[in-house]
Simulated scan of single mutants.
Amino acid sequence: MTPPIDIVQVGLGPLGQMLTPVLEAKSSLRVVSALDIDPELAGTDLADLAGAGQGVSVSGTLDDALAPNPSVAVVTTVSELDRLWPQIQPLVEASIHIVSTCEELSHSWTTSPDLSRTIDEAAKSHGVSVLGTGINPGFLMDFLPSAVTAVCRRIDSVKVERIQDASSRRLPFRQKIGAGLNAEEFEQRTTAGKIRHVGLTESANFIAAKLGWSLDRTEDVVEPVITDVTVEGDDWVVEPGYATGVNQTGRGFIGDREVITLVFRAAVGQSDPHDTVSLTGDPDYSITVPGGTHGDVATCAIIANAIPSVIDALPGLRTMSDIPLVSCAP
Score class of each variant (00 low, 15 high):
P3Q: 06
P3C: 07
P4M: 05
I7V: 13
G11E: 11
L12N: 09
P14V: 15
L15E: 10
L19G: 04
L19V: 00
E24C: 13
K26C: 05
S28T: 00
S28G: 06
S28Y: 00
R30Y: 03
V31H: 06
V32Q: 03
V32I: 12
S33W: 08
S33E: 06
S33L: 09
A34H: 03
P39A: 10
L46R: 08
D48L: 14
G53N: 15
G55T: 10
S57T: 14
S59H: 04
T61K: 07
D64I: 04
A67E: 15
P68V: 08
S71F: 08
V74L: 14
V75P: 02
V75F: 06
V78W: 00
L81K: 03
W85T: 02
W85A: 09
P90Y: 12
I96R: 05
E104L: 01
E104G: 01
H107L: 04
L115A: 15
T118W: 06
T118C: 06
I119W: 00
A122V: 01
G138C: 05
L144K: 06
R153C: 11
R153Y: 08
R154C: 08
I155Q: 03
D156K: 06
V158W: 00
K159G: 04
K159T: 15
S167K: 06
R170F: 07
P172M: 11
R174T: 03
K176V: 13
G180N: 09
L181Q: 12
F186W: 13
F186A: 08
Q188P: 03
T190P: 02
T191H: 08
A192K: 13
I195H: 04
H197C: 11
G199W: 00
G199P: 03
L200H: 03
E202S: 05
S203P: 05
S203G: 07
A204W: 02
N205E: 12
F206G: 02
I207L: 01
D216L: 02
R217H: 13
V222K: 12
V222C: 12
V229M: 10
T230H: 09
E239L: 13
P240V: 08
Y242A: 04
A243M: 09
T244K: 07
G245Y: 00
V246H: 02
Q248R: 02
T249Q: 05
T249F: 01
T249Y: 01
G252I: 07
F253N: 03
D256P: 03
I260T: 05
V263S: 11
A267T: 02
V268M: 10
D272P: 04
S278C: 07
T280V: 15
T280Y: 04
D282H: 10
D282Y: 05
D282P: 01
Y285I: 01
Y285W: 11
G291Q: 06
T293K: 01
H294F: 04
D296E: 15
V297T: 15
T299V: 09
T299R: 02
T299M: 07
I302E: 01
N305F: 01
A306I: 07
A306G: 09
P308N: 15
I311T: 12
A313N: 00
L314V: 10
G316D: 12
G316N: 13
L317S: 07
R318N: 07
T319D: 01
L325A: 15
S327R: 12
P330Y: 08
P330N: 13
